[in-house]
C-alpha cells in the first residue's frame, strides 16, 4: 500500500533529507500525507454519494434492511474505532515524553482495536448475507463498496501500526523524532473520521 511507502524515507532519512529551503523533511511528509488523505476523501465521497443516490431512490428497501439488522452491533463497532483513535493519541503522547515502551503498548492496542473492528465488521457482513444482502444484490453493491474500501483501509492501518511497533522496538523514534508516528496518526484518525461519515450516511440516515 502506498501509505506505508510514504513512511519509507524516514527509515533512510540520509537519502531523502536534502535540507533545502525553509522546510524540514518532516514537514514535507506531513503535508504530503494531508494531500494524500485529501485524495482519499474524494474516493470515499464518490462511493458514499453513489450509495446516497441509491438510498434516496429506494427509501423503503433501505428502511426495511435497517429494521432487520438493527444498529446495536455497528454502534459498538463505531465506539471501538473511536477508542482506537484515543489509544493512538496516547501512544504519540508517550513518545513525546520519551517513553518508547508506552508508545509500543498504545500502538499495539490501536492495532488490536483495529483488528477487532474488522472482525466485528465481518460478523455484520455474515448477518447481512443471511438476509440476502450480497454483493450482487441492489442494496448490497452500494453498501459493500464504501464499507469494504474502509475495511481495507483499516487492515492497511493495522499493518502500518504493527510496522510502527516494530520500528519503535528498533529505536527508530525518539521524543524529538516523532514524524513516523505522527504520519501514521494522521492516517489512522482519517480512517476513523471517514467511518463516522459512513456510519452517519449509511447506517443512520
Amino acid at each position: 500500500m502506498s501509505e506505508a511507502r510514504l513512511d519509507m524515507p524516514v527509515a533512510d532519512s540520509h537519502a531523502a533529507d536534502h535540507g533545502h529551503g525553509s522546510h524540514s523533511h518532516a514537514e514535507n511528509l506531513k503535508f504530503g500525507m494531508w494531500l494524500f488523505l485529501g485524495s482519499e476523501v474524494i474516493i470515499f465521497t464518490v462511493l458514499i454519494a453513489a450509495y446516497l443516490v441509491f438510498a434516496v431512490a429506494h427509501r423503503d428497501l433501505v428502511k426495511e434492511i435497517h429494521e432487520q439488522v438493527g444498529i446495536l452491533l455497528v454502534s459498538g463497532n463505531t465506539f471501538i474505532l473511536i477508542t482506537s483513535s484515543w489509544t493512538m493519541v496516547m501512544g504519540l503522547r508517550e513518545l513525546q515524553r520519551g517513553n518508547i515502551r508506552g508508545l509500543r503498548r498504545w500502538i499495539s492496542a490501536t492495532a488490536l482495536l483495529g483488528m477487532l473492528f474488522f472482525a466485528i465488521q465481518m460478523v455484520e457482513y455474515r448477518q447481512l448475507a443471511a438476509i440476502g444482502v450480497t454483493l450482487t444484490s441492489e442494496f448490497g453493491a452500494h453498501f459493500y463498496a464504501p464499507t469494504m474500501l474502509h475495511g481495507a483501509h483499516v487492515i492497511a492501518g493495522v499493518i502500518w501500526a504493527l510496522f510502527v511497533v516494530r520500528q519503535a522496538g528498533r529505536n527508530r523514534y525518539s521524543a524529538t523524532k516523532t514524524i513516523g508516528v505522527e504520519v501514521f496518526g494522521l492516517y489512522w484518525h482519517f480512517v476513523d473520521v471517514i467511518w463516522i461519515f459512513i456510519f452517519t450516511c449509511i447506517y443512520l440516515l
Binding site: 474524494i42 474516493i43 465521497t45 464518490v46 454483493l135 450482487t136 453493491a141
Partner: peptide, 23 residues
C-alpha cells in the same frame, strides 16, 4: 482532486465486470 474520481469510477466498473454488481 480529480484523479480519485476516476479511481472510484473504475473500482465500481471492475466490480460490475468481475463481482457481478450492477452499479
Amino acid at each position: 482532486l480529480a484523479t480519485p474520481f476516476l479511481a472510484g469510477a473504475l473500482t465500481l466498473l471492475i466490480l460490475d465486470r468481475v463481482a457481478g454488481t450492477s452499479f
